[in-house]
Design a protein around this nucleic acid. Structure first.
Lengths: 175, 175
DNA sequence: TCAGCCATGTAATGGGTTACATGATTGA
DNA sequence: TCAATCATGTAACCCATTACATGGCTGA
């Protein structure tokens, strides 16, 4: 098992060979919504992945001053990513589920659908929880703002359920 | 400056004297949506707060086996919380903004409104970013799922802006 | 009788952040 | 000329999580 960051980097590398800096920029303008690491974090993850043989790096000299390092997936790395994407975990952090959906192109279609379903189920459970909270909290001044914030949670979670439903429908339609 | 966890505990203690365990349960069923610490985390925060004089603790013996400890805010603690709630920071983590709104009852009304406005602005900026991403990403197979996940981000963020607008209107209406 | 809640912690681990260093190139 | 971007890292810190320990009480 790797960390989420490591899997995320593996996932990003499916888009092609990249330097650490490339990865950082690319992450920001793609997965950034769910996973936005510090630059230094990426430079710590890459050697770890290389030591495990999941990534191979090569120096590209003469690009400016530094010897730029390009990193690409090894077959083992691709396999590790695929294993991760095939592993179902209903209780995983929803953001991790979203990451898996993000990289779902490299998962077997059934696993992809399962991740979306799991995300949906998670949202449904959260919705039930918030609903219960909402019903339990007495309507008085002191709870006014907590209730308002909770209302945001409710809206957000309903949205998530709808979104998952639509995506599931789409995945069903186009096999 | 304290950590977010410390401020959160101070905020929860405005609801009354509580033990560490109480705080943990109470957090789960109130701020849990934005801030859900591990139990051990609370037991680490409390002594820190007591050393700083922001919380006073007293032993309540004879409750079961353990000497249960109840903690309550000192005037200094209340002042620290209020200072935090009065401090504006447009670039703060949106979850921190939400926390401040959650505890907004203890903030000056103008500061509360400012936090909601800041949260709104943050969401608007995020929306612009996602919109740009959405427009830039080429519509091909490989971007299909990233685009789907991005769509969730877009919906969520639009919802956030709406929510903030409505809350601001409400705050304006009832002074 | 046995799981689960109350209640308070310790220990170890670690991932991630912030801050810093370096320095050439490019656009305003 | 001055800030920003490219490009790669190191160092230090620390908050938070996970796992563990303890043990009486309560309800199924």
């Amino acid at each position: 098992m790797l960390t989420t960051s490591e899997y995320a980097v593996l996932g990003l590398l499916t888009f092609g060979e990249k330097s650490g800096y490339d990865l950082w920029c690319f992450a920001e303008r793609s997965v950034g919504f769910i996973w936005a690491p510090a630059k230094s974090q990426i430079y710590k993850v890459l050697p770890r992945l290389e030591r495990s043989g999941l990534v191979r790096s090569r120096l590209v000299g003469e690009t400016r001053r530094f010897d730029k390092q390009l990193h690409r997936l090894t077959p083992a790395g691709r396999a590790a990513l695929r294993r991760w994407l095939t592993t179902l975990d209903a209780d995983a952090d929803p953001d991790v589920q979203l990451l898996k959906i993000f990289f779902g192109r490299h998962a077997p279609p059934s696993a992809l659908a399962a991740h979306v379903a799991a995300y949906r189920e998670h949202s449904v459970r959260t919705l039930a929880l918030y609903d219960a909270l909402d019903r339990r909290l007495p309507r008085d001044d002191r709870n006014d703002l907590p209730l308002a914030v909770l209302a945001l949670g409710l809206r957000r979670t309903r949205e998530a359920v709808e979104w998952a439903d639509e995506l599931l429908a789409r995945l069903d339609a186009e096999p």
